[in-house]
Amino acid sequence: MSIQVEHLYKQFRVHVRQAGWTGAVRSLFKREIRTVEAVRDISFTIPSGEIVAFLGPNGAGKTTTIKMLAGLLYPSSGSIQVAGYVPFEQKAEFKKIMSLVMGQKSQLIWDIPPMETFLVNKAIYEIEDRAFRQTLDELVELLELEELLTKPTRSLSLGQRMKCELAAALLHRPKVLFLDEPTIGLDVHTQEKVRRFIGQYNREHRTTVLLTSHYMGDVTALCDRVLIINHGKLLYDGELDMLTEKLTPYKLLEVQLSSIPDISWDAYGELVDAKEGKVTLRVPRERIHEVSSRFLQLFDVRDLNIEDPPMEEVITLAFQEDAHVS
């Protein structure tokens, strides 16, 4: 097991401050302290080499959990093991086998080319010249960095910078990689590239990857398994496909007809859309075969398509508090 988390809790004590003058003055004399439970009883394990997505709305506790896994935060209670180490002991050996990339925060030196940051990391991680050269060549090829290496970081685009961030984080060949929103703010094309890189890197090096993202594309492209968290609680741990089945007991049936007959569709399913000869129905999973064959018999069908509901919809459902998915 590469990552093992048991009954993890994290509480923060925060000052509650009222807005405005009176609130500011009052907080000088009397501080109201409230305890916020950021993570409540989370347990999971991730075998080495697996790539798992961590999903949840803003403030769900994803980043707090990742920070605890990387040893940046001390858990209030519970236990964590990452590759056999206890992260918050902050041992140098542990830091050498893991890496953290935060999409919102940069580790590259702003005014000079990324190559200089790479060299600093080479010294810090004590990477041998040969190993460094080899890893760098590989990363340059995979991420297409050739021309970026010598340009000052400040002149790079967000996407180019993100690719360099990934390279900087992977130079010491970590066994465990934490990615906190690696594709945030990137255009669709670059997202796709970064995604493909992460997938390929994971396959080739058997690196354990835990990633958080707001983009479903990242998740569907990279991970079979997802962890869904909301209000600090783990709501779901399992395969992405299973989640879809559990939460959305229907499929989308799209039928292209020569003309739309003026009938009630209730006998087939719930009507979503009907225009320009295309009818979209929400049909319960167990009826999908029956409904589609009836369509083929009764209507002049030009094209028929069965789809799962969009992932965003599934996740929105999962985030709803009463969803009993686990």
């Binding site: 830091k95 953290l100 935060m102 810090i124």
Partner: peptide, 13 residues
């Protein structure tokens, strides 16, 4: 202030 101190803490130094 910016939170990049996190990167310092992940370095084996």
């Amino acid at each position: 202030r910016m939170g990049t101190f996190d990167y310092v803490l992940t370095k084996p130094v």
